[in-house]
């Protein structure tokens, strides 16, 4: 039997990553369901016409509302957003996955794409917050 506490503690030990756990799924339920509503063309049209008014129909927290309106995707991950649901938002904005994902890395789209073509981001120094702290290497630790 897996130790559930150890299992979930380890999921929080990965640099620059928010694993979509039950805790985040609960916090982000209405946020993700709002994003899901943008799958329908009629809803997309209403959203584009007045984003704040559209959001008024959804039970988001003030922080979630603010992060949605400012397209702060890292903050939305912190507030329970899941990337496949948030994709409905950035797709409605006309952004590809590469364009939207690069905004979370602090890199320009061009630099991000160049990194991918060169083989992607290395896992070295990106595996464990604890291990990085122990080795005094703070790269990507948060």
């Amino acid at each position: 039997m897996t130790d559930i506490h150890a299992y979930f503690a380890e999921l929080e030990d990965i640099p620059g990553t928010r694993v979509y756990t039950g805790k985040r799924a609960r916090e982000g339920y209405h946020l993700n369901q709002f994003a899901m509503s943008l799958m329908k063309a009629d809803n997309r049209a209403r959203w584009k016409a007045d984003e704040a008014a559209y959001l008024a129909d959804w039970h988001l927290t003030d922080e979630q509302r603010k992060a949605v309106l400012s397209r702060d995707y890292n903050r939305l991950l912190d507030l329970g957003g899941n990337i496949y649901f948030l994709a409905k938002m950035f797709s409605t904005d006309g952004l590809s996955f590469v364009q939207a994902v690069s905004t979370m890395t602090g890199m320009s789209v061009e630099d991000y794409q160049a990194m991918m073509v060169a083989g992607g981001r290395s896992a070295v120094g990106q595996r464990s917050i604890r291990a990085n702290a122990a080795s005094g290497d703070n790269k990507g630790a948060n």
Partner: peptide, 17 residues
């Protein structure tokens, strides 16, 4: 195969793994 679509660690690829 390897991919990460979220957060500052997005773009991770591990050819060996």
């Amino acid at each position: 195969m390897s991919h990460q679509l979220q957060g500052p660690r997005a773009g991770l690829i591990n050819r060996d793994w």
